[in-house]
Design a protein around this nucleic acid. Structure first.
Lengths: 125, 125
DNA sequence: TCGTTAATTAACTTATCGGTTAAACGTAGA
DNA sequence: TCTACGTTTAACCGATAAGTTAATTAACGA
């Protein structure tokens, strides 16, 4: 696997078990066995998934006695989203669609719309 | 690798060459050799990267004569972003930050801020 | 101190990834 | 029809991912 930061993040997310672990951690910190409980795989396998998530910076871990608690660290998700953000113009007719969506979520007042699409740079990796 | 749709998408993105190809396609359609040009890897390798991207739904391809043109298909990025979106509350103090960001991109007028965070469901995979 | 519990490490297996070179395919043009 | 070009397929290689079971580590508690 590629070792650049973004690749490590996306690779960590490319597994349903790891995504489910993140979903669980969104509800609050948990120990390894708590995280393992819903799955039909061994504890060492979970332990390795956690290592992958930790290596990607998606979780951080602490120990108290014999328990190791994991907690969600969403910063890498922000990075990954930031990378995708530049393609948003291709799937949203314009940025106002998202704007409108956010407003709907907040049950807030109407918003003016305009049309200047912001051109986006490319990265070469 | 896991075969569920989201895993296939994230896995496709977990490679810098493939992300660079997507970046190139954001500027417009391109043939295989045009896409290969910036890279120090063989044409068959590029061909396989394209197959991965196509399988993930990130590009679609057409042929005219002996040239195969690829074009960006951003729908899967929308799906991936949608999955991450639920974690946004963990890295943004509130959704207004994004709102503000969008406004800045549009060089539009100031926006009022409020504080209702929208709670988010979890998926179990 | 001894047993129990929580978790990790070690050793191994199987499958897949990302690259290579060589061969084959499909179309256009001389 | 033959050749050249753009691309894919085939066969292979070395590295690594994701799982297993068994052994080890680390801390607590009787």
């Amino acid at each position: 696997m590629a070792t650049d930061r973004l690749s490590v993040i996306f690779a960590a997310l490319a597994d349903p078990t790891r995504r489910a672990i993140l979903a669980r951690l969104a509800e609050g910190d948990a120990t390894v066995s708590e995280l393992a409980e819903p799955f039909a795989i061994s504890l060492p396998a979970i332990s390795r998934h956690l290592k992958v998530l930790e290596h990607a910076g998606l979780i951080s871990r602490s120990r108290s006695a014999q328990w190791r608690s994991s907690s969600l660290n969403p910063e890498p998700l922000r990075e990954a989203t930031a990378w995708m953000e530049r393609y948003r113009q291709f799937w949203d007719a314009n940025f106002d669609r998202l704007d409108a969506h956010l407003r709907r979520m907040r049950q807030a007042q109407a918003t003016p719309t305009d049309n200047d699409k912001t051109p986006t740079d490319n990265d070469k990796q």
